[in-house]
Design a protein around this nucleic acid. Structure first.
Lengths: 144, 144
DNA sequence: ATTAAAATGCAATATTATTGCATTGAGCAC
DNA sequence: GTGCTCAATGCAATAATATTGCATTTTAAT
């Protein structure tokens, strides 16, 4: 799953920011990885083929993309993933398989969740709601 | 909000475990605190009035109560809170105010959320779903 | 009281994240 | 292009969170 650089440029420019090579390599590396990655894994992976990044740069760039809604942090795993939701939902609901560690984003669930939030609370925009479980593939592979 | 020690004893015994003084003081201290606490805060608070606990003990005791469903971990804050849900929902939905840091558990939301989970995924039991926002009290105090 | 298993203590270490300040780089005016 | 300004990054120390292996103590069953 590659990232559309033209689209990235548009998004970044319209936010009044610059698309630096550190910002590019981080989101591209994350997009190329099947599983979510930690900040340190990301740094180590980029070191192999590209360049050295200080860990503080990695965290700052991750925060940058998170603030633009293009990267999600999976809090329960301290891992990061590229947002796969083109629909700009207020909520991003992800299903996190605790066996294979794979994570998928569900737009349908996000829409439903958004509808039913209590009126007693002003929910923030662009947040990630994490549901843990076992994906169907892992369930099928279970030898019980 | 104090903890009913008789109820605790029942729950622990029926799980085939023992209610040690470390396990007691940790859940009681957490219950007495208005806000969720980190493991280190818990240790420091207990040190003042009670006893020294090694940080590994704190984490192990927290895991113990979490496995019994009596304590929740708030992953996005690395904090712990006593479960306030008497209804034994599969999901515990908490609303976390990012201004005052207060956290409330919503049984109603938990019920609704449980109903609508995708059939493509076997969700684990006893998990905490975190919604961030601003509580009504903080919203009222906002001077904009 | 004896004993086996469970729980805790200890202290080293791993993992995750932030900070303040120096240096570099990007975009803009000229 | 040159110089300017502010944003972005590098650096390296440190903070915050969490885990581990093994020794010791406690629990509860006999």
């Amino acid at each position: 799953m590659a990232i559309d650089k033209t689209r990235l440029t548009e998004i970044v420019k319209s936010a009044g920011k610059s698309l630096t090579k550190q910002r590019c390599v981080i989101i591209e590396t994350l997009a190329a990885n099947k599983l979510p990655m930690s900040a340190y894994e990301l740094r180590d992976q980029i070191k192999i083929t590209e360049q050295n990044l200080n860990i503080s740069t990695v965290y700052r760039v991750l925060d940058f993309w998170i603030s633009l809604g293009l990267i999600h942090k999976i809090e329960s795993a301290n891992r990061f993933m590229v947002c796969s939701d083109e629909h700009q939902h207020q909520f991003h609901v992800i299903q996190h398989c605790t066996r294979c560690e794979n994570v998928v984003e569900s737009c349908e669930l996000a829409s439903q969740t958004k509808m039913q939030l209590s009126h007693e609370f002003r929910a923030l925009e662009n947040q990630v709601i994490e549901i843990k479980g076992i994906c169907l593939e892992c369930e099928a592979n279970t030898s019980t």
